[in-house]
């Protein structure tokens, strides 16, 4: 602990935080637009949430309550590591409760519990550019965004349907924000896409790629699709084996080496809260060929 007092509140110096806040304000003013920012080297590797951590560090105040999730869970290793980082460097209160948190940093999920006004959801973003795998050049993709030259994005979806009969994107599913910018919602499952229109502020940080973008509260977010192949949020066709929820995103867990598996909520806080309030597991076990014993 003594060593950590060498560092400023939430690790970053105040100048850097101000620089990030300016980028955040710009991002809020132009929903879905990727704002370049001078990302700093953080004490965790690029690709492990440095963008999200910088955004969180710039937003945190001593009175905040922080929740960190990875894959929907509070107890996954990287979530633990980031939560500890802020416990050490910012001494903020932490929680696993979605409701109790004022700032939630997430990787790959949106909590099941609807967020409310005043909360901030910070996403860790590996590749912010939705056009990157169609056009590798930054100079070109920036131009495409500037000119709303998004035909190529639909060509990709067209090719998916021509080949597979379906749009073959299941996560990081591209969206159009407020009718203007095409945006990568980070690798959340497309099940979460409808929640992108919400009451809370959503901030996206990509450290390695030096980009910040944002969705202000109640902004329109539309998942790209075709009229005759509409966007479908999908999930495993099961109910949670622990709390019985049939409306949540589920993780599939292999329970033995004979093909037995069970499905449980990926949002651990949501699942635990349901269980605590007496929700019952699904009546029928869900696995095949071997029935799992939850």
């Amino acid at each position: 602990m003594t060593q950590d007092t060498h560092y400023n509140f939430a690790y970053l110096d105040e100048q850097t935080k101000r620089m990030i806040r300016r980028a955040l304000l710009k991002a809020m003013a132009i929903p879905g637009y990727q704002v370049p920012f001078a990302s700093r080297e953080m004490p965790m590797p690029y690709g492990w949430g440095t963008g999200g951590v910088q955004v969180s560090a710039a937003c945190l105040t001593p009175s905040d309550t922080l929740k960190v999730i990875d894959q929907g869970a509070d107890d996954t290793t990287n979530a633990v590591s980031i939560r500890k980082f802020f416990e050490k460097t910012a001494q903020v209160a932490t929680t696993e409760s979605t409701r109790a948190a004022s700032l939630i940093q997430t990787r790959h999920r949106i909590p099941e519990e609807p967020l409310r006004e005043g909360q901030i959801l910070v996403y860790q973003v590996p590749i912010p550019e939705p056009l990157r795998f169609l056009e590798p050049r930054e100079t070109e993709t920036r131009k495409m965004h500037a000119l709303q030259d998004y035909g190529l994005m639909h060509v990709k979806l067209y090719e998916d349907i021509a080949r597979h009969g379906n749009i073959a994107t299941s996560y990081a599913y591209p969206v159009k924000v407020q009718g203007r910018y095409v945006m990568d919602p980070s690798p959340i499952p497309k099940f979460d896409n409808p929640k992108l229109r919400m009451a809370a502020i959503q901030l996206f940080g990509a450290g390695r790629e030096q980009r910040i973008y944002a969705i202000p509260p109640y902004t329109d977010v539309v998942s790209l699709d075709f009229e005759d192949h509409p966007f479908e949020p999908s999930k495993a066709n099961h109910a949670c084996s622990l709390c019985g929820a049939d409306h949540t995103y589920l993780d599939e867990v292999i329970v033995d080496d004979r093909g037995g598996r069970m499905f449980v909520c990926s949002d651990t806080d949501y699942c635990a809260t349901r269980q605590a309030t007496g929700a019952a597991p699904a009546q029928t076990a869900t696995s095949q060929p071997q029935e799992a014993q939850p």
Partner: peptide
Amino acid sequence: QATGFLEHIKLPHYVDFQSELELVRKL
């Protein structure tokens, strides 16, 4: 940058993988 991004693929990705799994099953 390179080593961080390269090594991040060992972090859990089971949410993305699960959604791919559903898609492949559906297809």
